Amino acid sequence: MSENMATFSSIKEELEYFRNLASEYKKKWQDSVQELEEFQESSRELEAELEAQLEQLEMQSKELRAMNTHLQMEYENLKERLEISHLEGHRQISSLEHELSTLKAEKEEFLKYIRELEQSNDDLERGKR
């Protein structure tokens, strides 16, 4: 440390040197304190801003969860209604298929009956001639 020490020709010169050095350090200290205060202030502002954003995002998340729950319930309701509609549709189709087969059988019977009547009618006409 004594190697870096400047040599002075008088006490006044040494005093002036150390006063300047003290003034420089004081200025650096004041600048550092000011920077620290500015940093702390900007940190507080940023923290407040982030807290506000966090609250907003938490509210948004809560709303989205509620909406998701509502949509899931609606989905389940629609799914149940669709299954009921499918079952009802299958029941109706089965009923209509059964009715169709019954009607086809009746039609066949009527066609057979008509043929028999026509045959009897032809036989009667031939017998009449």
Results as ranks from 00 to 15, higher is better:
residue 3 E to F: 11
residue 4 N to F: 08
residue 5 M to F: 06
residue 11 I to E: 14
residue 12 K to N: 05
residue 13 E to Q: 10
residue 16 E to G: 09
residue 17 Y to P: 00
residue 18 F to K: 06
residue 20 N to E: 15
residue 21 L to H: 08
residue 21 L to Y: 12
residue 23 S to T: 09
residue 24 E to V: 01
residue 28 K to W: 01
residue 31 D to H: 06
residue 33 V to E: 02
residue 33 V to Y: 10
residue 34 Q to N: 13
residue 35 E to V: 08
residue 36 L to P: 05
residue 37 E to Q: 10
residue 37 E to A: 06
residue 37 E to F: 01
residue 39 F to L: 11
residue 40 Q to L: 08
residue 40 Q to M: 15
residue 41 E to D: 07
residue 42 S to F: 08
residue 44 R to C: 02
residue 48 A to G: 14
residue 52 A to K: 06
residue 52 A to D: 10
residue 56 Q to T: 13
residue 56 Q to Y: 05
residue 56 Q to I: 07
residue 59 M to K: 03
residue 59 M to E: 14
residue 61 S to F: 03
residue 62 K to I: 02
residue 65 R to M: 06
residue 65 R to D: 09
residue 65 R to P: 01
residue 66 A to F: 10
residue 67 M to E: 12
residue 67 M to H: 14
residue 70 H to F: 13
residue 72 Q to E: 15
residue 73 M to F: 04
residue 74 E to Y: 11
residue 75 Y to N: 07
residue 76 E to F: 13
residue 76 E to H: 05
residue 77 N to H: 12
residue 78 L to N: 06
residue 79 K to R: 02
residue 80 E to M: 05
residue 82 L to K: 10
residue 84 I to T: 15
residue 88 E to K: 00
residue 88 E to D: 10
residue 89 G to H: 15
residue 91 R to M: 09
residue 91 R to N: 12
residue 92 Q to N: 09
residue 92 Q to L: 12
residue 94 S to E: 12
residue 98 H to D: 15
residue 100 L to T: 12
residue 100 L to Q: 15
residue 104 K to L: 05
residue 108 E to H: 08
residue 111 L to A: 11
residue 111 L to N: 03
residue 112 K to L: 10
residue 114 I to Y: 03
residue 115 R to E: 12
residue 116 E to L: 10
residue 117 L to M: 03
residue 117 L to S: 02
residue 119 Q to K: 05
residue 124 L to K: 01
residue 125 E to N: 10
residue 125 E to I: 15
residue 125 E to P: 00
residue 126 R to M: 14
residue 127 G to F: 14
residue 129 R to W: 09
